[in-house]
């Protein structure tokens, strides 16, 4: 490319940036975020700071949970204030399964005995299925409403599950349930902090790739239209409700899988994971990063956990500063950190 070409292709004020260079910049930001997330714990590992490797795992899992939520909020226009239900349920699947594996008692004794298991693969599968079924039930009811009512009804369902977990003594009630031995995978040692981080990192990249692929497909086109103009979608002959419901279920499955890993990271699951604070935290991360931006949840999670760690070390009132940052983002960077770093999203 000659110099004069570059000048012509440079974004001019008032005109949309040429697609090619815009893609380049977005791609660079995305690769940069992933590289940062991957390299920081590697460096920490070789410097012997296990704490920071685990912190990176936390960022990764919170980001993954938010990727799930972003599919509902950002791509589907369904503002769920109850995604902690799936995050926590995924966590409880890991916790309960490990508890029974440790105890050598069945999870369910009748009509068929289902034993506990400390196999992550089995736990992930169950977490995905169970969270999908829960989201199917909750979504089927909630998606009959819109707007504020949808927000409130998803919150109400999640709170029901929270209070249930809080008051059910079998699995620790409000004290929560410890996972004494981290669940296992064939071949690799999940107790190694870096190995566990890489598993989480794999989960995050997979959910990002899945979201990207889905949104480019016919289903994604229909979901986008359901968000932008559901009358247009119905007029074309596609009923919006089933499209939204399926997206809601996929969203919950991703968040649920992140929850199962999160319980294993902490070696502990408690109703806190199910509480509305958790739902709010995930929402804040999505908004910070940029609603409906593929890498928004990752950018948001990095920012959130960094603020929590750095400011939280200085003052217990760190959420005041989080509030200020959120305020600034909402007021001045409408498209979140990703919009600020990579420019506005353009549809093809």
């Amino acid at each position: 490319m000659t110099k004069s070409d570059t000048r012509i292709l440079a974004p001019q004020p008032g005109l949309p940036a040429p697609t090619a260079s815009w893609h380049d910049r977005k791609g660079l930001v995305q690769i940069g975020l992933l590289a940062l997330l991957l390299l920081a714990p590697l460096a920490a590992h070789f410097l012997g700071h296990v704490y920071y490797v685990n912190l990176a795992s936390r960022v990764t899992l919170v980001a993954m949970a938010a990727v799930g939520l972003n599919l509902a909020i950002g791509y589907g226009g369904m503002v769920s204030f109850g995604h902690a239900a799936y995050f926590g349920l995924g966590g409880y699947v890991a916790g309960i399964s490990a508890y029974h594996a440790f105890d050598l008692t069945p999870v369910i004794g009748w009509p068929v005995a289902i034993p506990g298991s400390d196999s992550m693969l089995a736990i992930w599968l169950v977490a995905i299925v169970v969270c999908g079924l829960l989201a199917l039930a909750i979504g089927a009811v909630s998606l009959r409403t819109t707007g504020v009512y949808f927000i409130m009804i998803t919150l109400a369902f999640a709170q029901m599950i929270y209070y249930f977990a809080n008051s059910w003594p079998t699995y620790g009630g409000e004290d929560g349930l410890p996972i004494y031995l981290r669940n296992t995978l064939p071949i690799v040692d999940t107790n190694d902090a870096l190995t566990f981080f890489l598993i989480c990192f794999g989960g995050l990249t997979l959910s990002l790739a899945l979201t990207s692929r889905i949104m480019k497909s016919r289903f994604g086109a229909a979901l986008t239209m359901a968000r932008l103009n559901d009358t247009r979608l119905a007029t074309a002959g596609i009923a919006p409700y089933p499209i939204r419901l399926v997206a809601f279920v996929i969203s919950a499955m991703i968040t649920g899988l992140a929850g199962a890993l999160y319980a294993d990271l902490n070696g502990f699951v408690s109703p806190t994971m199910l509480s509305w604070h958790m739902s709010g935290e995930l929402m804040v991360i999505v908004i910070l990063g940029g609603v409906g931006r593929l890498y928004g949840p990752l950018a948001g999670a990095i920012l959130y956990v960094m603020m929590e760690t750095l400011l939280g070390g200085l003052t217990e009132y760190w959420k005041l500063f989080l509030g200020l940052v959120l305020l600034l983002v909402v007021l001045f960077a409408k498209y979140g950190v990703m919009g600020w770093l990579a420019g506005r999203e353009r549809h093809e």
């Binding site: 692929r213 480019k216 016919r218 289903f219 086109a221 103009n229 247009r232 074309a236």
Partner: peptide
């Protein structure tokens, strides 16, 4: 119409509807 989408994409959703169900998650449109 869906304002932020291209003209093409607005019409394509109708073609997609005509061709049958929209639960195809893999092939890019």
């Amino acid at each position: 119409l869906a304002e932020p989408l291209s003209v093409k994409r607005n019409v394509m959703i109708a073609v997609q509807a005509l061709q049958g169900h929209s639960f195809r998650f893999w092939k890019p449109v």
